[in-house]
Amino acid sequence: MTAEAVDLERPATGVASGKLGVWIFLASEVMFFGALVGSYLVLRMGSASWPLPAATLDTTLLGINTFVLITSSVTMVNAVRAAERGDLPAMRRSLLATILLGGTFLGLKAFDYAHLVGGGITIGSSLFGACYFTLTGFHGLHVLGGLVTLVSLLLFSRRPAFARRIAWIENAGLYWHFVDVVWIVLFAILVLL
């Protein structure tokens, strides 16, 4: 047995290296979004006036978008479970559903941005605009990154080499759920509060 085989089969922590790496990466993402969200919170606390988001934002549209993203997390769970069962066609269907839902989220987000900009709220118009566009913008970029990953995995799943890389679906799922969690937090404290 070669050294690499030992490394891959018997990780010293019992957690596969890929999954471990994704979790460490997500820890750094928590710090990144934590710094952004924390800055928003303290700037807002220290600011003399703040527009009531409910009066400014289309909360119904953003509420629908929340449902879209939550649903995409469920389809992602289904994809991971199908992959673990070895049911590749079911996995591909669930992945495709996740991708379509993620795309819908970004589409509605674009609609939301256009609506705001049309109403005169831009990234440079007020502290609210700056925080809103920066925080949701970085979340949107993460959704986009997730979509690129999922599309690549969907294409890759047709190749024979995929059989050894089933764990990648689980790892991509972890990232996708994390992006969902970020939105859950942003929706409550940035959109609704």
Partner: peptide, 20 residues
Amino acid sequence: GTSFFLAGANAPFEGGQPLL
């Protein structure tokens, strides 16, 4: 065009804080 860390006359809008 944001002003997270700009305050005073130079800032395009109120509320930014250099100390942050």
